[in-house]
């Protein structure tokens, strides 16, 4: 297996901040014919924190899955840090973009926390010492140090969500894409998550229905409707526009 010698270690995260997410005229339809994305054009600057809102079925999750080539045509219409997402660059891209799924039971598929956080670094071909160091660092970042040998089914939802974030932080990504991170959390766990998101240095693209969290964490908001970018702008402007919110069924609860 190719070992990526040039793979940056944790210390290099900040250097890679000089990059962005770019989607050019991206469309996607599922094999069953259901169209999910129509001509998405989107540019996100380095270190930006962007919220992705819109009703269920608007294409938020589908868009996130395009960022690291799990879905999509791999024809270079999506690029990360200037690297087009193609079949040849897929392994680099997967290390650049950390994708966190909504249900931590899907994300955490290993018997223990350590195994799960180590999965990404191991499959990047890193040596054992580096893998262990990255696991320790990632767990410290999400405040879950000491949970290495715990089993996911012994942890609360909030703890599992944190570990889910750690499973991609250990790959030292430049971009984090999170799918509804605050869904289902109790107020205390949600507060902890918001604080975690505020401290993360990565470029953030987060799909959510939680507009109060958006206000706190994300300066920029994109509204997705029926697979199209319906609106893209500063969060405070969007939330002040009652007509726009009503049009897309959004409520600042």
């Amino acid at each position: 297996m190719t070992i990526m010698a040039a793979e940056p270690t944790t210390e290099h995260v900040y250097e890679r901040q000089a990059i962005s997410v770019h989607l050019r005229d991206t469309s996607f339809a599922y094999p069953d014919g259901r169209e999910a994305l129509h001509g998405i054009n989107l540019t996100i600057g380095a270190g930006e924190k962007v919220a992705l809102v819109g009703p269920n079925g608007a294409g938020k999750s589908t868009l996130l899955l395009h960022l690291n080539g799990v879905l999509g045509a791999l024809d270079g219409h999506v690029s990360i840090a200037g690297t087009p997402v193609t079949r040849a660059t897929l392994r680099q891209i997967r290390a650049l973009v950390g994708l966190v799924f909504q249900d931590p039971d899907d994300q955490l598929f290993s018997p223990t926390v350590f195994d799960d956080v180590a999965f990404g670094p191991l499959h990047m071909g890193l040596p054992e010492a580096e893998v262990r160091q990255r696991v320790a660092h990632a767990l410290a970042q999400v405040g879950m140090s000491g949970y290495e040998s715990r089993m996911p089914h012994h942890m609360s939802l909030g703890q599992r969500k944190r570990v889910a974030v750690a499973t991609v932080l250990s790959m030292a990504p430049a971009v984090l894409a999170l799918d509804e991170p605050s869904a289902g959390l109790d107020p205390r766990a949600r507060r902890g998550l918001i604080e975690l998101l505020q401290t993360l240095p990565q470029t953030l693209l987060v799909s959510t229905h939680d507009l109060r969290m958006v206000v706190e964490v994300f300066p920029r908001t994109i509204i997705l409707a029926e697979g199209r970018v319906a609106h893209d702008g500063p969060t405070d402007q969007i939330l002040a526009n009652a007509a726009l919110l009503a049009e897309h069924g959004l409520e600042l609860v």
């Binding site: 094999p31 069953d32 799990v70 879905l71 999509g72 791999l74 079949r87």
Partner: peptide, 8 residues
């Protein structure tokens, strides 16, 4: 016949 296309 799966819903997610393979792409690795």
């Amino acid at each position: 016949n799966r819903s997610v296309p393979s792409s690795r």
